[in-house]
Computed example of a mutant assay.
Amino acid sequence: MTEIRTPRLILRRWHDDDLLPLAEITADPEVMRWMDDGSVLDLEQTAEAVERWEEEWDEEGFGLFAIELLASGELAGFAGLSVPDFLPAVLPAVEIRWLLGRQFWGQGYASEAAHATLEFALQDRGLDRVVSINRMANDASENVVRKLGMTSEYETTHPVHGFALSVHSIDLTEYHG
């Protein structure tokens, strides 16, 4: 079982008892406003998402980790890697993603989880390049992208929803783990 420990977090595969706390996170409109089309997810949709993420682990050897707080055992959200099929222009690529419940914002957890995920991608999984695709004006995610050392590649439009996206990347030669 793949697990990463950081000073404050455990990044791990999904457990059955993660579903309800994750569904609470994905039901929050403020949390979801930057994800996909901004829609919240109900319990069934959240379960389907976790199932897709677990399938990606099986198929690709990477996926989205559950983020657990080391001190309390609380589920804080997710971080990990996925193939961004929704944006064919960047393919073949692997995207780094993260999402935290609102009560976990502003504490450095996203950056900590993203750094661990990037190291996992480039050093453990042997990827040569990782991208980050963010909606424009998502300043919190742009801040994490800068902390990761990713550079801006270009701006584009979401092919289905029409909103502006920024694409950043980092490759193994640029990474300073």
Score class of each variant (00 low, 15 high):
D16Y: 13
E55T: 14
A79I: 07
D42C: 11
T26S: 02
F62E: 00
N134A: 15
I25F: 02
R97N: 01
F62K: 01
I4A: 09
R102T: 02
E112I: 11
L127R: 05
R135T: 15
R12D: 14
V144D: 00
G177Q: 12
G61C: 02
M32H: 13
E48L: 12
M150Y: 08
L11C: 02
R52M: 02
F65M: 13
R52F: 11
T6Q: 09
T157F: 08
E54N: 10
A114I: 14
M136G: 14
S169N: 12
P159E: 06
F163Y: 13
H168C: 05
L41E: 07
E44C: 05
T26E: 01
A76E: 12
P29Y: 14
E95H: 02
M32E: 05
F104M: 11
T2G: 00
E142G: 15
G106N: 00
S152K: 14
P7F: 03
L70R: 11
V50L: 05
T157S: 06
E174N: 10
E112Q: 13
V50E: 00
T157Y: 04
R146Q: 13
F65T: 03
S82P: 06
T151E: 15
Y109E: 08
H158E: 04
T2Y: 13
H176K: 13
S82F: 05
A23F: 03
A114F: 11
R13Q: 09
N134E: 10
I170H: 11
L41A: 01
R52C: 03
W53Y: 06
F78M: 07
P88I: 01
I4T: 15
D17L: 08
Q123A: 14
G63S: 11
A66M: 06
Y154M: 03
V90K: 04
Y109H: 10
S141N: 05
F86D: 00
L165H: 01
S82M: 05
E54G: 02
I96Q: 02
L148F: 02
S72Y: 12
W34M: 11
